[in-house]
């Protein structure tokens, strides 16, 4: 049974990930006074896209087709490392959070190259911005995980969230609060949510992630959308594990609570998107540097304790 649990967790993550964008959209619709898309819209989209025949630009090479697939593989592999409900994941080892970050880097690398393969000005623009923001967001995210490692004295994600309990919040509330804030900003930026990017805008000059995937269609686009949902799940579960560090010992109960918190995180993203305007493009690095400052502060606090 113990061997099966990580697999069940993984399967749950793979199946439920597309639910999160649906929740976000519903929350946004609620704030805007609309009914909104069905909660399962992304599932329908994916099913439809997988059935479609793609169109390929004559400019592109195999890089364009391989990009989404390798990116999805990288994100799925990252999901293997991420703990679920404070329990060790299928793959947990010292320094696995470094591996996680570099897997996200691999996914980004593939997406950017696939975008550049089209020779489109817009996709080049999106790719350029994606890389720019990564330079600012990655160190902050990294420092945050390093601070978490320092707080818990563990060097694997599974270990960190295994050690983290409600008592940790009582002892180190400032540090953990700062880290959660930093991770939330990282979530918004890495998943191209408002205020860093707008997933809904189709105004080409302002968008980032959407601009990179303009040319993708059919199963490739499905892979990209699904990959984005997985990435959202990754960051969401990071935050959920931060704010809900209780382990009752009963696996099913923990998992249910965890999923509930995940929905809460998605709702929080939706609320953030509804009440905030998108930042001017030149201001986005400032937001990411703020996340970096949060992480750095947390680390300084932790070091000086």
């Amino acid at each position: 049974m113990e061997i099966v649990k990580p697999l069940v967790q993984l399967l749950a993550a793979l199946l439920l990930a597309p639910l999160l964008p649906g929740v976000i959209n519903r929350v946004k619709a609620f704030f805007a006074g609309r009914r909104g898309q069905p909660l399962l819209q992304l599932y329908y989209d994916l099913a439809k896209l997988l059935r479609k025949t793609p169109v390929y630009s004559r400019t592109t090479t195999w890089v364009f087709k391989a990009g989404p697939a390798i990116g999805l593989a990288a994100l799925a592999a990252a999901l293997l490392v991420m703990p679920f409900a404070g329990r060790p994941s299928a793959l947990s080892f010292d320094g696995d959070f470094v591996y996680l970050i570099y897997l996200l880097g691999l996914a980004r690398f593939c997406a950017v190259l696939a975008a550049l393969d089209t020779g489109s000005a817009f996709e080049g623009m999106g790719a350029s911005r994606e890389m720019q923001f990564a330079v600012f967001s990655e160190p902050g995210f990294f420092l945050g995980l390093a601070a978490l490692a320092a707080v818990t004295g563990q060097r694997s994600l599974g270990g960190m969230f295994g050690v983290l309990t409600g008592d940790s919040w009582r002892v180190a509330a400032p540090v953990l609060a700062l880290l959660t804030a930093s991770f939330f900003i990282a979530l918004l930026a890495e998943n191209s949510r408002v205020p860093a990017d707008d997933p809904n805008t189709h105004l080409e000059l302002t968008m980032i992630h959407e601009a990179m995937i303009l040319d993708h269609s059919g199963p490739d686009l499905a892979y990209i959308l699904y990959g984005a949902a997985l990435k959202l799940w990754l960051f969401g579960s990071l935050i959920a594990s931060m704010v809900l560090p209780s382990h009752s010992g009963a696996w099913a109960r923990d998992a249910a609570m965890f999923l509930l918190v995940m929905l809460g995180v998605a709702a929080a993203v939706g609320v953030t998107e509804s009440v905030m305007a998108r930042l001017r493009l030149t201001k986005v690095p400032y937001m990411l540097i703020t996340a970096f400052a949060f992480s750095a502060l947390a680390l300084i606090f932790q070091m000086g304790r």
Binding site: R170, V171, A173, P174, L297, F301
Partner: peptide, 14 residues
């Protein structure tokens, strides 16, 4: 330790 006071200190730094 006085966690609430520490939170306030963090708040001041923020």
């Amino acid at each position: 330790m006085n966690t609430f006071a520490e939170l306030i200190i963090v708040f001041i730094i923020l």
